[in-house]
Nucleic acid binder design. Sequence first.
DNA 1: TCAACTCACATACATCTTGCATATGAATTC
DNA 2: GAATTCATATGCAAGATGTATGTGAGTTGA
Lengths: 199, 199
Amino acid sequence: MNKRLQQMAQNREKLIEAGRDAFARHGFAGASMEELTAAAGLTRGALYHNFGDKRGLLAAVVHQIDEAMATEAQAAAARYDDLWLRLLAEGEAYIEMAMRPEVQRIVLLDGPAVLGDPSRWPSQNACLQSTKQSVRQLIQEGIFRPVDVEAASRLLSGAALNAALYVAASSDPAATLPKAIESFRTMAEGFLVERPGGE
Amino acid sequence: MNKRLQQMAQNREKLIEAGRDAFARHGFAGASMEELTAAAGLTRGALYHNFGDKRGLLAAVVHQIDEAMATEAQAAAARYDDLWLRLLAEGEAYIEMAMRPEVQRIVLLDGPAVLGDPSRWPSQNACLQSTKQSVRQLIQEGIFRPVDVEAASRLLSGAALNAALYVAASSDPAATLPKAIESFRTMAEGFLVERPGGE
DNA sequence: TCAACTCACATACATCTTGCATATGAATTC
DNA sequence: GAATTCATATGCAAGATGTATGTGAGTTGA
């Protein structure tokens, strides 16, 4: 029973999936709602009913990707016990994820341009939240200098995403990746009370 | 003589000015070429002749702002003799400039989304160039750790712009600004061979 | 079980936008 | 001073979004 709710949820999912594909392939402005909905086996009617407008669909798509990224990054971080190493792993995970064209186009470029600053997104930018958590603990344990948690987290996660854009846009991403990660780590080390000796 | 070239240059300037205003006010997608050109006392004909298409105008506008920003940042940096202080001043200048709505909307949001990654822009992102110069010298003089110049510059200037977006989006920009600047400095200090003692 | 109703989705339409093709007229040139 | 060039204006076609309205499957209540 409740066949309608079930159908509706399924259609929402189809539209988000189609949107994800279309936005990644053509960018937000270049994606045609007509084509997009047709690809999902529906019409624009379904889209406007479910998401209000084109931006609404983008918001839903961004939210989905954003959460998946946070989950993935936390999984990468969870492999370490040391808080500091975890933060680094999280950052590097972001950098690697943001190399995916889909993430770049949708989350890093069109997302901010169309929806505004990420920190204002309803999803609260899940990536940012987990970074904040780590930073707070690091400061409590006296490993990080007592800077403002909000600002530090914001700049750290921003640096990771920025590094990713840089890597992805470079002519030789594979060669650039390690350099970007190294610089990211160097900048993150600025927050440490005691810098690690070698390397 | 050459009244035509003169007139044309003048019209280009008018269109860029009108574009700057319209893009800042309505965003790239929301700006109507019809209104924009009318505001400049011309029609879309002039625009398409001079800039090819809408993106062409945006590129011209971005180029203009980009160069102005670089000039301003270098002026701020020039007030210091110490290279390290100069880099900080440059970064802070970027942060403050990027708080201007016009810069945010056009250079930081729509620019990358429409024209692609800034480091690929014809203007070569003047901001980045001057940062690179500073970093290179700092490494040569042994003040900075020997990291990759390209990557470090990219992340540093990215961090500055990111900090600006963060400040501007915050509910109380005036209160957030110093925190953002502090975190930026802390991250930049990660590149130093010897961290300054106090503060 | 069946009639009434709800509502998710489809369809039709009005409006606006971009970019191109063509026209025009002032400025330059021979 | 006539011919020509070319920067700009004008007319037009294709396509996009968003809204208003229609429709039919699914749900509900007696």
